[in-house]
Design a binder for these strands. Structure first.
Length: 222
DNA sequence: CCATTAACTGACT
DNA sequence: AGTCAGTTAATGG
């Protein structure tokens, strides 16, 4: 990733003993943030955030000032703004009440670099993330709004879903507005398209969960 | 055309 | 009171 650097589901820490963890845990700060509170701004450099509890949205601002959500991280995730010089507009906001630990980036890296295995693991994770991002860019750049939405639903299904064969159920709750911000379209368009997909029987909404057949969705039109 | 903006509405919390 | 989903009229590229 360009300016922002983060990891998901830190099984990376599984390779570390308690001693190392406490070393990394040279935590400079711990913080409770309530929903909607801003955790990280572009100017906020040199820190590593570790999510203990809650959810954090990462987002950027387009030149027009529109917000684009790039990720939604849960407990165990690490993120931070490791910028070069001034460019890039990366923010992090609590999606729910959240508890984070904050450590110094340098300390974190120093500890990591003494552990080749962990460093290798870290690289693997970063490369995986990069290739995911490439798929993502392709889908976002080339597709219609419908294909972006389908792509995002499948992605959300993979990340927050429960799968039985082709049947996918997104467990987490997302508002139309959030989905819209993830794929860079208006909320009304998401409402309309989801409505159309629902009417066609391609997706189903059960309470707060979206359910769909992966095959059917991927080949669906409206 | 297709999507966006803006505005309004009813439902829900 | 604030959030969310669903609609519509007007606008724009």
């Amino acid at each position: 990733m360009d300016k922002i650097w983060y990891l998901k589901q830190l099984d990376i820490f599984k390779e570390l003993g308690p001693k190392d963890i406490s070393e990394i845990g040279v935590i400079v700060d711990e913080k409770n943030v309530s929903k909607k509170e801003l955790l990280l701004e572009p100017e906020d450099k040199g820190k590593v955030y570790l999510i203990k509890r809650g959810q954090v949205k990462l987002y950027q601002l387009t030149p027009e000032g529109k917000r684009v959500i790039s990720d939604n991280l849960g407990p165990g995730s690490v993120f931070g703004n490791f910028g070069g010089d001034g460019q890039g507009q990366n923010f992090a906001e609590a999606s729910s009440d959240t508890f984070v630990c904050i450590a110094k980036r340098d300390t974190f890296f120093e500890t990591i670099s003494k552990k080749p295995k962990v460093a290798a693991k870290l690289m693997t994770m970063l490369f995986d993330q990069i290739s995911l991002d490439r798929d993502y860019i392709t889908a976002m750049a080339s597709g219609s709004v419908l294909s972006k939405l389908k792509f995002k639903l499948v992605e959300l299904g993979g990340k927050y879903g429960e799968q039985k064969g082709n049947r996918v159920k997104i467990k987490e709750r997302f508002t139309h507005e959030e989905i819209a911000d993830m794929i860079g379209v208006s909320r009304e368009t998401v409402t309309k398209l989801l409505g159309a997909l629902k009417r066609k029987g391609i997706i189903k909404v059960e309470g707060k969960n979206i359910i769909f057949d992966k095959e059917k969705l991927e080949t669906a039109s409206v």
